[in-house]
Design a protein around this nucleic acid. Structure first.
Lengths: 217, 217, 217, 217
DNA sequence: GATGAATGAGAGTTCATTCAT
DNA sequence: GATGAATGAACTCTCATTCAT
């Protein structure tokens, strides 16, 4: 970015440009995304666009960045809640979060996914996954006792990558799955498997003893 | 394809064009892939390119097609071998196949992965996964007794999508994982989880003792 | 033309190429007229086409030439018949011939007209008109006594050019006129005017005496 | 046209493009008319060309339009002057106007003539003729008493088409005729014939005497 | 002689980017 | 700062023509 938009007006300008970018990408696809079109859609001149974005890629990068920040925040925010929750609930929460993040603003999500490679934002995207995986790895380490995991960060990588791919593929190819509880359950099983948990039907945790009290509640 | 290359010379021409496409894609990426460049790299004139490929996309589609056919064949070929193998061996075979397919011709695999969405070949790509998933779903149904799966085709989708994403991400971001047995073991656990199997450490059925009590529960 | 087609086979080949050219021109227009298409339509290889026509223009020129020869022959053939006919009949015959030549094979006529300029065949076409005009000028000179013409060849030029333009425009823009007797009568008047004849209604010649009997009829 | 050139600079740009188009058409013909060439000849970039003309054809269409507007205005402007003039003067004025319009900017006129069909502007061109013919038909109706015309609009069509063709052919093939009074006289006769007038030599009605004897014959 | 695969110059057109206003 | 007309390199694709088989 050429200038950092500190003033209110600049921020608004940058925002409207990013919005326009998203709109065009979603509605008309990558090939329709020209700088001139974006500027016009944002009600701004091309020249102004180039005041804040050094080139077209920066524009898209800006869009993706915002999108990713948003997602990261939501997922990282899960952390604390997971800390003390029973395993089954924690896993359920992770899966639910993954699915709901995907459902949210699905069209933009979809467009971005389809164009990620083009933008060279793949690495950037991976960084997102990494941050989430780090949080997850920490949690795994924390709860090591209850789990059966050799390498927490590897397990976290596998879980995050799989959930990511599954929600994305579902979004792109089988959107109905995003609403399906059966799908959610299958994902929970996958996660449980990665964590070395025994396959409890439903969400029943393996340590009957520990959980008993709670169920009694 | 405009003409079908039946003669030896034509076949060679088409092959060299696809090779050139792959080479450029691998070395310089999508944006460097221009029809003139491909033709020149293939030692052929643009005109000849257009004799066999109606447009640029067809060129990439041709590349992907060949690549996908190859992979599909290899994975589908696994089927018979799985039929009667013990569960842990079958899972191991699936994971091993996924990893080795990914390792094979990794650079092209990588480029195709990076460029796939662009050409609307995603659906095509998914078709590949679908074919593999179908075979897997059949196998799950066949071994239903030994497994704990609600919806075989859903489980197959989850497994295939995850393995696919994990091997691809590993290839792109952590190539060393493709050779790591720890990674393989983690993948096997994931698959086992999806199939509702108890978490056997490694592939050994030796954990029977530990698990026995639980089952008895 | 590269070779002169003396043998029967060559003639047939040349003819089928010209036919194909005409067909494509009529059915799909100038832009569809490519040498490859013509060759294929004629059931011949491009190479063979180039044996007989040095280039694309020659192909079209050949077509136009045949077409023009045909027309010229028909119009020049009128000459003798005109020699002794009464003026009104002669004029009627000329106009009728012009109209019928135009009606004949109208679609090709139309295509050629539309493309004449492109082909640089305009001069060639004018040559056709010139030949016809020459015959007409001779006839005017022959019948000078009965007419009132200063410069026979100028009058012939005017008549031929006008008739030509009128039949062509009629063909292109108002095809129904080609069948209209009122149009024919109007053309006859124009010709009569060019020849310095007084405007007799219908075809009646100006020499009332001669015509008196007829009218009386 | 993509944008409408309202500012002075834009107008100049558009004008210089049309001028360049005319120049190239005149000097090198249709096949030399490429958008890049036109832009370069106009001292402008191709991009600018495409800012005002959506495609190549629009460029030529723009040229023809301007040219046709010009001509139409001049010819339609004749109308009032004809209204009350004696017949022979009116006819003379029409012929003179046709000839002078043709002489004016002859080279462009020539090129446009040669290239018109190509761009499907024939219909457009005919519209021009139609407008002129309409004015003429009105005039014929007005002066019906003095003339001998069955169908004024048909007669007008014949006159306009003939004059048009004759002046154009003269321009292309015998430019000297455009200056020749004998040619003018011959055209006047043609027009007179179309209007059912007796063949007055020159424009003078004074030939009544001369013709009388003949008629008497 | 015939074939048609191969050629490659060159066409129309786009769009990221600049810079005079 | 903002504007948007102007730029022009670069792209995809065509088709008249050639020449090895």
């Amino acid at each position: 970015m050429r200038k950092h938009p500190t003033q209110a007006r600049s921020r608004a300008l940058v925002d409207s440009l990013l919005e326009a970018t998203a709109r065009i990408l979603v509605q008309d696809g990558w090939d329709a995304l020209t700088t001139n079109r974006v500027a016009k859609a944002a009600g701004v001149s091309v020249g102004s666009l180039y005041q804040y974005f050094p080139n077209k890629d920066a524009l898209v990068a800006g869009l993706v960045e915002g999108w990713a920040d948003n997602i990261t925040k939501r997922l990282v925010a899960l952390g604390p809640a997971l800390a003390e929750a029973p395993l089954d609930e924690a896993i359920g929460a992770v899966v639910t979060a993954a699915l709901s993040v995907t459902r949210e603003d699905a069209p933009l999500h979809r467009s971005v996914l389809l164009q990620l490679p083009r933008i060279g934002a793949l690495a950037f995207f991976e960084q997102l996954n990494q941050r989430v995986a780090d949080v997850l790895a920490e949690w795994i380490t924390l709860r090591r006792e209850e789990l059966d995991v050799d390498d927490p960060s590897l397990a976290a990588f596998v879980i995050v990558t799989s959930l990511d791919a599954l929600t994305d593929h579902a979004l792109l190819l089988r959107p109905e799955l995003l609403e399906s509880s059966r799908f959610a359950r299958q994902l929970e099983r996958m996660v449980a498997g990665c964590l070395g948990l025994e396959p409890n039907r439903g969400r029943a945790p393996r340590n009957a003893q520990r959980n008993a009290p709670r169920r009694a509640k």
